[in-house]
């Protein structure tokens, strides 16, 4: 049945995959309480309100809402939603309409240095959001392949930065150089030195961040957007510069803010651990832990446990 009336904004969203359950939302707020973006990144972030804006046909407001752009489809909210609305699908539907209408993301996204890019496409395979893709263009009269990143799709997790064998991709704020420069512990006393790479999302509550700040200088905490941003080289740089241990903290299985960064890093680090063993270096100097949303206070056990282990190995 074709209708002559133009579709309203809400109808357009309803017509897109995932949008069909939009009207079931009864604004209970479970999604917002599960989501960490409001707490960690943007106080105005609120998926419940975005769904409401769509239902009430508030097109401009929805396009300008940070919620439209910041959702990384981690889907912590979906299994908790009592109405079983696939919220990230609805948000993506809104985002696609916003992109069509010429809006663009306010997020810091990665940049490709074409001088270094070899067109190997590892970044294309790594990205959970299909942001990078290969293009062909002529450089100095020769056709060559390069990676190019869609700003609208990039969530800034940095997994491609870690994966790129040419070091051709950078994310402002967390480039290789910026992270490496923080690995500079000067061990003066007998206590072991430890570098903690912690993903921005695995500590849910402020109380846990306070725990991190409570450690003395021999524990250096380096914040990274996702544990998937970790390049094994960084751990090697740290060990090489005389640091005793490296602890990488990521989210629990199924809770990664960027869908699969924790999985990628767990694979990389277990491989590294094996290699260190083959190189006759003590096992256990590099450790990966996964902290879940309900693991309040567990970070203290993990750091303390690592320090005790390093101390035992040293003696």
């Amino acid at each position: 049945m074709e209708s002559n009336h133009p579709l309203t904004f809400a109808d357009q969203v309803r017509a897109m995959p995932g949008g069909e359950h939009l009207d079931l939302c009864y604004s209970c707020g479970t999604c917002v309480s599960k989501c960490m973006i409001q707490q960690k990144l943007e106080p105005e972030y609120n998926p419940r309100r975005l769904l409401r804006m769509v239902m009430m046909d508030m097109r401009e407001e929805a396009f300008n809402s940070p919620t439209t752009w910041l959702c990384s489809a981690c889907d912590l909210c979906y299994p908790a939603c009592p109405q079983q609305i696939h919220i990230s699908d609805v948000i993506e539907a809104v985002k696609n309409l916003a992109v069509e209408a010429g809006y663009s993301t306010p997020l810091e996204t990665v940049e490709v240095d074409e001088a270094r890019c070899s067109g190997c496409a590892i970044c294309v395979m790594t990205c959970p959001y299909e942001a990078p893709h290969l293009i062909e263009k002529e450089v100095n009269g020769v056709m060559d392949r390069f990676s190019e990143v869609d700003a609208e799709n990039c969530m800034g997790c940095g997994m491609c930065v870690a994966a790129c064998p040419m070091g051709a991709i950078a994310r402002p704020g967390v480039s290789n150089a910026e992270i490496s420069s923080q690995i500079d512990i000067k061990t003066q006393n007998s206590s072991p030195s430890l570098v903690v790479f912690i993903c921005d999302w695995c500590l849910r509550v402020d109380a846990d961040l306070e725990i991190l700040e409570s450690y003395p200088d021999n524990v250096r905490v380096i914040h990274i957007p996702c544990s998937g941003r970790i390049d094994p080289q960084m751990a090697l740089i740290a060990l090489n510069s005389g640091i005793d241990g490296v602890l990488v903290c990521g989210c629990a299985p199924g809770e990664c803010h960027y869908q699969r960064g924790n999985y990628v890093s767990s694979c990389k680090l277990s491989l590294l651990d094996k290699m260190l063993g083959q190189m006759d270096l003590a096992n256990g100097q590099v450790r990966f832990v996964q902290l879940g949303t309900q693991d309040r206070g567990r970070i203290r056990h993990e750091i303390d446990g690592m320090l005790v282990q390093l101390l035992q190995e040293a003696s």
Partner: peptide, 25 residues
Amino acid sequence: GRPGLITENELTHNLFVHSEDVSLG
């Protein structure tokens, strides 16, 4: 607001209810 999560302080066994106050957003 329907709480999405409860966490516990393992020492005191006090509980922390995480919820959106819907009126405040």
